[in-house]
């Protein structure tokens, strides 16, 4: 579904990613781990199409299309979803307004009929239950005055509503207490399916106690330095990132 090969990315001329290879197939859950500043969030943003990141070499293919050619909204309509580390606040725009516009855009792109107001509300109700969110939050401005946990849960709600094919969760666990973390993980697990791929970007292993990944990759200094099964995450938890040779050859890491 997603094939990243030899991806080099620079920001303001400074290389951040220095040759990333990653292949994710439908139904798989991958975890990308690494210390702060390793380039994890950069990878997530490049996949979603954020401006300001310069791809200097390599490519990203998604469902056999060149992803880098697409505008962010085209990527979203093609089924890519990024759960933000820091969800943005947009005053005056109700959550439900965004959900409805976004869903209908995505549905249109999928060749499905748009939902009218009533059908949409029914649909959103089922999704709310899935992530355990209060209905009241639908009518508040996007993320404005939300607690850290509410913001993250709101991201998962959007994901549940939009039903993406590839979801990238950027540090979704950061800043969450254990209850909120469980709630978010439950939401994510409920959305796992054989048609949907997920990439969890995270610094800590604790999210992976609740969402078991198929593959774990370690990103350090802009390179994938190690890949392995879920046991790699526990190893990182015990030993930290220090034991990894961050200068290791790129070739060692294979998805």
């Amino acid at each position: 579904m997603l094939e990243i090969s030899n991806l080099h990315v620079a920001v303001n001329g400074t290389p951040i990613l220095k040759g990333i290879d990653l292949t994710v197939r439908a139904g798989e859950v991958h975890a990308v781990m690494g210390p702060n500043g390793s380039g994890k969030s950069t990878l997530a943003h490049v996949i979603a199409g954020r401006e300001g990141y310069e791809v200097t070499a390599g490519e990203i293919r998604y469902l056999d299309r060149n992803l880098l050619e697409l505008a962010p909204e085209e990527r979203a309509r093609a089924g890519i979803f990024l759960a933000f580390q820091y969800p943005v606040e947009i005053p005056g725009v109700a959550n439900i307004q965004l959900l409805k516009s976004a869903l209908n855009q995505v549905r249109r792109a999928r060749g499905e009929a748009e939902l009218d107001a009533m059908d949409f509300l029914d649909y959103v109700q089922t999704r709310l239950a899935l992530v355990g969110m209060k209905e009241e939050l639908l009518y508040r401005s996007i993320n404005e005055g939300f607690s850290g946990g509410e913001k993250k849960r709101n991201e998962i709600l959007q994901m549940a509503v939009l039903e993406p094919r590839l979801a990238i969760l950027d540090e979704t666990d950061s800043g969450l207490d254990i209850d909120a973390l469980k709630a978010v993980a439950d939401g994510v697990n409920a959305l796992r399916s054989h048609e949907r791929a997920m990439v969890l970007v995270t610094h800590y292993q604790r999210l992976l106690n609740y969402i078991r990944p198929d593959r774990v990759h370690v990103l350090a200094a802009g390179r994938m330095v190690k890949s392995g099964g879920p046991e790699l995450a526990s190893e990182l938890e015990e030993r930290g990132y220090g034991w990894l040779d961050t200068t290791a050859e790129v070739g060692e890491a294979r998805a």
């Binding site: 979203a76 933000f84 976004a102 855009q105």
Partner: peptide, 8 residues
Amino acid sequence: FYLQSRGL
């Protein structure tokens, strides 16, 4: 970007 990444 946030809104565009949701398909708008």
